[in-house]
């Protein structure tokens, strides 16, 4: 009876309109499921048995990706409760901690997945380096990877400001102060003042939208953290994965 039901279900018009093939319990459907599914088609249909060996990639790139997805999910959840306004941000975080159901869990997950992503992106890079996977023809994907690394760090750092507590405020104050030391375009940098850069027009002013970290900085970091950088990372990841397929995987795949 169950077989019959399964048969009916997988042959129904609705099921077929979604999946286009039957249950992946035979080799043909196992091929179909990978290349007809937008999420799975970044894989080849078949891989060498030795590619399943974990001791080559240690799944590090995959774990980094998974952490990024997890950050997106928990991050969107947090956005429902967060206001990028200096008068409210801190209270919102306190509410998450003490009032909102699951708030603590989501915030903790978001925070530690972020630490994890920084760590794993570095581990992944180390794996790629140690297996020489950046050499021709994969040079460019290494460059894309470095961009991903930089964006991951900036993502973490822009998120750091959002709770608007002492930790956030001063880390970002000292960090953005560095920008004012940029040669030529920072007020404190070599040849900055000589070129006419002041606290009100230099690169740091552009970064935080003022002379000190305040409301403008918060909204800038918020938009960068929640929209701009995740979007850039997503695009860069699309390129990253596309190139792995096009350039070929270095390992025993």
């Amino acid at each position: 009876m169950l077989e019959n039901l399964k048969e009916k279900l997988t042959k129904s018009q609705v099921f077929r309109s979604i999946f286009r093939h039957g249950f992946p319990d035979n080799d043909m459907n196992r091929a179909y499921v990978v290349f007809s599914n937008v999420f799975l088609h970044i894989h080849p249909v078949k891989v060498r048995r030795s590619a399943l060996r974990m001791r080559y990639t240690f799944c590090l790139g995959g774990i980094t990706l998974f952490l990024f997805i997890m950050l997106t999910v928990t991050g969107i959840w947090l956005m429902f409760y967060y206001t990028p306004y200096t008068g409210l941000a801190y209270n919102n975080i306190q509410d998450l901690q003490f009032v909102i159901f699951g708030g603590n869990l989501m915030r903790d997950l978001h925070r530690f997945a972020a630490h994890g992503m920084v760590l794993f992106v570095w581990l992944h890079m180390t794996r790629v380096f140690m297996t020489g996977a950046y050499k021709a023809p994969r040079e460019f994907n290494w460059v894309v990877g470095v961009l991903l690394l930089v964006m991951t760090l900036i993502l973490s750092w822009t998120g750091y400001l959002l709770p608007w507590d002492q930790l956030a405020y001063w880390a970002v104050t000292v960090g953005t102060k560095m920008a004012s030391y940029t040669p030529f375009i920072g007020q404190n940098g070599p040849w900055g003042a000589q070129l006419g850069f002041l606290p009100t027009n230099d690169i740091m002013f552009m970064l935080i939208g003022g002379t000190v970290v305040g409301q403008n900085a918060l909204i800038r970091f918020y938009v960068l953290h929640c929209v701009v950088l995740p979007l850039f990372v997503t695009v860069a990841l699309a390129v990253h994965f596309w190139r792995i397929r096009k350039d070929g995987f270095s390992g025993p795949l």
């Binding site: 196992r30 799975l40 080849p44 891989v47 060498r48 048995r49």
Partner: peptide, 13 residues
């Protein structure tokens, strides 16, 4: 070399 299907082998990992 011996190859296997991505689904279920790799997907499962």
């Amino acid at each position: 070399e011996d190859t296997v299907y991505t689904w279920p082998h790799l997907i499962m990992i």
